[in-house]
Design a protein around this nucleic acid. Structure first.
Length: 481
DNA sequence: CGATTTTGACCGGCGC
DNA sequence: GCGCCGGTCAAAATCG
């Protein structure tokens, strides 16, 4: 009996203890939930802070980008004004019509976007290179107002406008051309009339500038941030791969067109040729390449002589084939009747930086076209990266963002404006360890003369500055997305 | 159903 | 004048 009592007491105690345990567990769970809740709140707060920080960073980058743009615009202005001067000399015409510039931009390979099969028709959305494209009409619009539709269809007037614009830049002339086409489409729907109007624009002395972008790309087209509509496809002579013709579909009257074709020598290389300037606002991701292509086109049409002078300066560089980063080269596309500038992204740097800047000394024009070549590509040796890395700018290999180094020597003080570097950039410049910094110093001193010469060359060539600045800004812009 | 792509036809430039 | 070639158009087909 006592045992029973004891047992019952014990059971009660156990029950009571269990009940107590349940309460404790509940309290524990509650406190755990509170903790979780608090940590979640803390996490959210952290994220908010991070968000705010990133926003500030973005604003800063935007600010830098804008100031850079305005500088590019300022730098380019005299050239445009000069070339837009009312005295249309034969030299001017020949120079602008006969330019063929190759600009090679090496950059680190960025992550390859997932290619969505179901999205393959929307070729504007894919990239293997993380390239962004658009045209910078901050520059173009500030000079003249080419977008304004020509309300006076008088052929004389049209011709006059076209000629002046063409002297300013190819894309501008393209705009005028297309706006006129739009006018004709309204007033004279006949296709033959439309084509006749095209002919008016295609004066022998007025060539349209094109910017050709070469990229290693397995996909039908590169992601340039714009939306394109395919309007034709042709198999051109000498290349079994069909050439596709696209026009910008963001705005109905946008004159910008592009041609996409695989390189016959290397099928993995995609050649995208842009023509014209967007007459509408662009998505952010489309502005970066726009800056580059627009500046390149501007340089193409406005800076022939200055490029030559730059070349002259570049030839003063130390005569060491391994360390001579600048040389002139023939453009591969000699048959192209249009002034074309080529941005070559096909040679990715194996080092961490934005690399070479090559001007082959065997430059000569064999097409009657002035074939100025700016080569930013990236052979591992004799690269601009060393120069840029030793005084101008370095790029993070994973982000392609420039490290905050001084760019003032390039001629744009804002370029080097130190900006708060986010965490991911907080790593050794050029990816080198501290042990290699002394080696860097040695390299720096040995290339000091080179750097000075290059600085001089760059500073003496506004067009070159604008292209370089645009290229840099494109690197920056590409990281915004 | 609207947007986009495909594709054959057409046009102008250019060289012969 | 003719033919080739690059570029564009536009109707039909396709896609989402």
């Amino acid at each position: 009996m006592e045992k029973k009592m004891d047992n019952s007491i014990t059971e009660e105690a156990v029950v009571a203890r269990n009940q107590g345990n349940n309460h404790e567990e509940e309290a524990l769970r509650k406190s755990l939930k509170d903790d979780e809740f608090k940590s979640a709140i803390a996490e959210v707060n952290e994220l908010r802070l991070e968000n705010a920080r990133l926003r500030m960073l973005l604003e800063q980058v935007q600010k830098d980008y804008n100031s850079l743009q305005s500088r590019v615009s300022n730098i380019s202005q005299p050239e445009f004004n000069k070339s837009a001067s009312p005295t249309c000399t034969t030299e001017n015409i020949i120079a602008e019509e006969s330019e063929l510039v190759s600009l090679r931009l090496g950059r680190s390979p960025s992550r390859i976007d997932q290619y969505k099969k179901d999205d393959k028709k929307r070729h504007s959305c894919h990239s293997s290179d993380g390239l962004k494209l658009g045209l910078d009409y901050n520059i173009e619009l500030s000079k003249s107002d080419p977008i304004k539709p020509n309300t006076d269809p008088s052929p004389d007037k049209v011709l006059e406008t076209k000629t002046v614009d063409a002297r300013e830049s190819g894309p501008t002339s393209e705009i005028v051309k297309t706006m006129r086409r739009g006018d004709n489409e309204v007033s004279q729907p006949s296709p033959s009339v439309k084509r006749a109007s095209d002919d008016d624009v295609s004066q022998p002395n007025v060539k349209r500038a094109r910017v050709s972008v070469r990229t290693k790309c397995d996909y039908p087209t590169i992601n340039d941030g714009c939306q394109w509509r395919k309007y034709g496809q042709k198999i051109s002579r000498g290349n079994p791969c069909p050439r596709s013709y696209y026009r910008c579909s963001v705005a109905p009257l946008c004159p910008v067109r592009k041609q996409v074709q695989r390189c016959v020598e290397d099928m993995s290389v995609l050649i995208t040729t842009y023509e014209g300037t967007h007459n509408h606002s662009l998505p952010i991701e489309a502005t970066a390449m726009a800056s580059t292509t627009s500046a390149a086109a501007s340089m193409l049409l406005s800076g022939s002589s200055s490029s030559q002078s730059a070349n002259k300066d570049f030839r003063n560089l130390p005569n060491n084939s391994k360390s001579t980063p600048l040389y002139l080269s023939n453009s591969p596309s000699n048959s192209n009747p249009f002034p074309t500038i080529t941005l070559d992204f096909t040679t990715f740097p194996t080092t961490s930086s934005f690399t070479s800047f090559n001007f082959p000394s065997n430059f000569q024009s064999n097409t009657g076209f002035l074939s100025n070549s700016l080569n930013f590509s990236s052979p591992e040796s004799d690269t601009l990266s060393k120069i840029l890395g030793s005084g101008y700018v370095d790029y993070d290999p994973t982000t392609s963002l420039p490290y905050s180094k001084s760019l003032t020597n390039i001629g744009s003080s804002n370029l080097g404006k130190p900006s708060p570097a986010p965490k991911q950039f907080d790593q050794p410049v050029l990816g080198k360890s501290k042990n290699s910094i002394s080696n860097n110093l040695k390299e720096e001193s040995s290339q000091q003369a080179l750097t000075e010469t290059l600085t001089k060359a760059i500073a003496s060539d506004p067009s070159f500055q604008s292209v370089l600045a645009a290229a840099i800004s494109s690197m920056v812009g590409a990281t915004k997305t």
